[in-house]
Amino acid sequence: METILAQLLNGLDKGGAYALIALGLTLVFGTLGVVNFAHGALFMLGAFCAVAFRQFITYETVTLDPTKLSPWGAPLEIKTPMAQIWFGDFGAVLINWSVPISILLAIPVMLVIGIVMERGLIKHFYKRAHMDQILVTFGLAIVLQEVVKAIFGANPISQPMPVELRGSADIGAMLGLTPGMVTYPIWRLIYFLFSASIIGAVFAFLRLTTFGMVVRAGMADRETVGILGINIDRRFTIMFGLAAVVAGLAGVMYTPLVPPNYHLGMDFLVLSFVVVVVGGMGSLPGAVAAGFLLGILQSFASMTEIKAIIPGIDQIIIYLVAVVILLVRPRGLLGRRGVMET
């Protein structure tokens, strides 16, 4: 029981990341009909928003203190991060909480990046074959990650989480099981809750607002909505921006778990595509369900007991599931009839 619960929890945070990326991919595919291979790069760009923010506020100014001497006799160097010069003690708080705070930076930045990407490049590919879309976004992904590599270097840059949120929560004790059996790092719990609330927000946005209603109508029948005098293209562009924001936020919050480097996006992209296909192309609930499902399956497959029976299963489980699903259930778990079914 405890092991099962522990593995279930272990799958949740990774599943959350998969679900968020897959959600964005599906939004873009459902609205604009574009297969976006650069979506992983957006996840990576989000992560680097956090990196950039932290590097900015911790930019150190060196002042010399002539009254004190360092052990080897030179005047003591005092390094003060920029945020502390500007805001004093509040600056220290800012640095401590840099990852959650950079969400505020990431939202506008990702929205702009998304809209520029759609208007600048992807717009020209609506009429062209899916293959061309795959190829051009694949090229774009290479460009984006190389730009990031040129700016931030090739090494992973670790992002500390806030001091208060380090350590683990004893989930087992909360649920009345033996204390100490099922513990879970707090940040990963937060990541899961964060991704769940983002997913909830996206669904609420689509279900409960007029804007969302129009977008859903456009997904169902773009032409008719256009004939009714609604500028559906502009709304779809905004949806692309929104998908970029979702991917970016997933990236920001993921930085304390895995130090981001420039090919983070590619690593996630391949898996996210598998997730989208398993969930059913164009189905938002399918993408979310498949994201969590595959995350949890992966964590179960990494158990030593399972690996003893089938060696190497943890490496291939996701792809294996994808192959089986694609062959047995061509439109994925929750895919609509007729959407890219062949």
Binding site: V270, Q315, V323, P330
Partner: peptide, 28 residues
């Protein structure tokens, strides 16, 4: 196996098989 599907699904299937080969070559 892969040619049972076409279009993007075929791409994903071949990708999945190649990644399986790669991951297995590195581990088991």
């Amino acid at each position: 196996v892969s040619l049972r599907r076409s279009g993007i699904y075929f791409s994903i299937l071949t990708l999945a098989f190649a990644q399986m080969c790669y991951n297995l070559a590195y581990s088991v």
